[in-house]
Every structure is written in C-alpha cells, then in structure tokens.
C-alpha cells in the first residue's frame, strides 16, 4: 500500500479531481477573473454549442476519427510484418533494428508539426522523388483495378504507400512490442512444425500469428490512444481553452472527444476479445 501511495496522491490530485472538475466545467459557464473563477451551472448548453454552433468542431472530430480508423490497421499490420522481418537472421540486423527504432525518438511532438510546414522539405520532395512516386502509384493503381480489386481497397492501399513516412514513424513502439513478443515464442514450436513439413508462410499463420494475437490487441489500443493524443482536435480544444478562454466549451469538447475515443476503444475491444488466443 505504501508503494502505491505516491501514485495514489498524484492520481487523486492530478487526475481524478480534475476529471470530475472538467465534467462540471463542461456543464457550466465559467467566468475567470482576478479573484478566481466563478462557475455557473448551465446544463448541456456547452455541448449543444460545440455540436451545433461551433463551425470547426464537428469537422475536426470526424477528421480525427476517420484518420485513426484508417491508420490503425495499417500501422498494426505494418509493424507486425516488420517485426517478423527484423526477427530473422541477416547481416546488418542490429543496424536495421536501431534505424527502425529511431522514429520513436525523433517523430513526436513539435518536430512532426514543424516538419510538415517545412518549405525545404516540400520543395526537395517535389524536385526529387515526387514526380516519380506519383506516377508509380498511378500505374500500380491501374494495375490493381484491372486485376479486379474493389476501388476503395485500391485507394486505401495506394494512400498507404503515399503516407509511408507517417506510418513508419508511428510504428516504432509497436515494432518493439511485437519483436519482444515474437522472441518469447518457444523455438520448439517452429522446429516441430518444420519437422511436419510446414512452410515458413504456414508457420507464420499457425504459430506466430496466434501467439502474438494478444499483442495485436495491445498494439491496436496503443496506436489508437497514441494517435488520439495529438491532432487537430486537441489543438482546437486547447485553443478554445487558452486562447479564447472559454473553459466550459473547451471541457465540453474534450468530453465529446473522449466519448468518441471510448466508443472506438469499446468497438476494438469487442472485436478482439473473442478472437485473441491466450495460452493459459
């Protein structure tokens, strides 16, 4: 009990009480002045304002949610694939691993947002690879369409190719988790399956995949939480709070946002809970 005490104090002081306070603020109008703050209960006015009056809230929310829904499967699949690759033995494996974990360190917070506005990057990319890559995806798209794939699938995949940097840079932690998970699978399983004549492809689907399925769940949750932590929505909430000083509206927005995240998490949980394979 003593061990948890510091955390418990912090939890109450910096999480639980603020959480309740935020709920209360979201239902009130707040006047902040030199003496402090005056809170006046106004019911759901802030929520109505956010959802029906505010011009940018709905759009930002929908954008944030669709972006997460698009990116999460890509990131999870991509990082599982890379983890399997990086687990195999080949010369230069150590270097490759440290390069792939580099984004964990570099691509977060301000750096990402500054990078997206960098003119030099934009110009260089246009001059260098831009023309070629657009052409490449275009041809690939045609090829896939002709081979009878459905249209949304094609645009999804080619979109993924175009956003490869974003995806790579967001999957560092996930690769780590998968890699660690793959290494806990006992080698006997693979040996036995090779004896029985299984190919590497079969071994992946019959052994690796079920064994890491709990981690797919963990990674899906992590990716969702991670990508919800910083996007257009959070900046909107912050601006409403600290630039316009409308604390009530800001809290209401934050709660709607949280509710949206909770719904998505619950959906993911529902999908995974039955499918995940636990050894014990």
């Amino acid at each position: 009990m003593l061990y948890i005490l510091p955390w418990l104090i912090g939890f109450l002081l910096f999480f639980f009480v603020p959480l309740l306070a935020s709920l209360r603020y979201s239902l009130s109008t707040i006047q902040a002045d030199a003496q402090g703050i005056a809170v006046q209960f106004t019911g759901l006015a802030n929520y109505i304002q956010a959802l029906t009056v505010d011009t940018s809230f709905n759009r930002a929310l929908v954008e944030a949610v669709t972006e997460v829904l698009i990116n999460v499967p890509l990131i999870v699949i991509f990082s599982l694939f890379l983890a399997v690759l990086l687990n195999q033995k080949f010369p230069g494996r150590a270097i490759a691993r440290s390069i792939f974990f580099l984004p964990v360190i570099l691509a977060s917070g301000v750096i990402m947002s500054l990078e997206s506005t960098s003119l030099i990057d934009a110009v260089n990319q246009n001059a260098g690879s831009g023309g070629g890559s657009v052409l490449g995806t275009f041809e690939l798209e045609n090829l896939m369409l002709e081979s009878g794939m459905s249209e949304w699938m094609v645009s999804y995949l080619s979109g993924a190719v175009d956003r490869i940097y974003q995806i790579v840079s967001q999957s560092g932690v996930q690769i780590l988790i998968f890699l660690a998970g793959i290494q806990t699978i006992s080698p006997q399983l693979y040996e036995a399956s090779r004896m029985e004549g299984a190919t590497g492809y079969e071994a992946f689907w019959k052994i690796t995949f079920p064994m890491v399925s709990p981690l797919i769940f963990v990674n899906a949750i992590y990716t969702i939480v991670d990508s919800f932590a910083g996007n257009a929505m959070t900046t909107l909430i912050r601006e409403t709070g600290f630039v316009k000083f409308d604390f009530g509206l800001s809290s209401a927005m934050a709660w709607v946002y949280f509710a949206a995240i909770a719904v998505i998490l619950a959906l993911v949980y529902g999908i995974f809970a039955k499918k995940v394979f636990y050894q014990d």
């Binding site: 002081l13 306070a21 959070t234």
Partner: peptide, 29 residues
C-alpha cells in the same frame, strides 16, 4: 490488498483518457 484491482483500473484509465480532457482543471489547479 482490497481494491488494488480497482486502483489498477485507475492506472489504465490514466492511459486511456486523453490529457486534453483534464487540461483545463489541472491548469486552473
């Protein structure tokens, strides 16, 4: 001990709730 699971659920909650949600009260606090 009694309620340690409940408290651990609290830890999970701190991971799941986006920091923006509690930003304003913490700031005022």
């Amino acid at each position: 001990f009694k309620g340690s699971n409940l408290l651990f659920a609290g830890v999970i909650l701190t991971i799941l709730v986006p920091p923006t949600t509690i930003l304003v009260p913490v700031y005022l606090n």
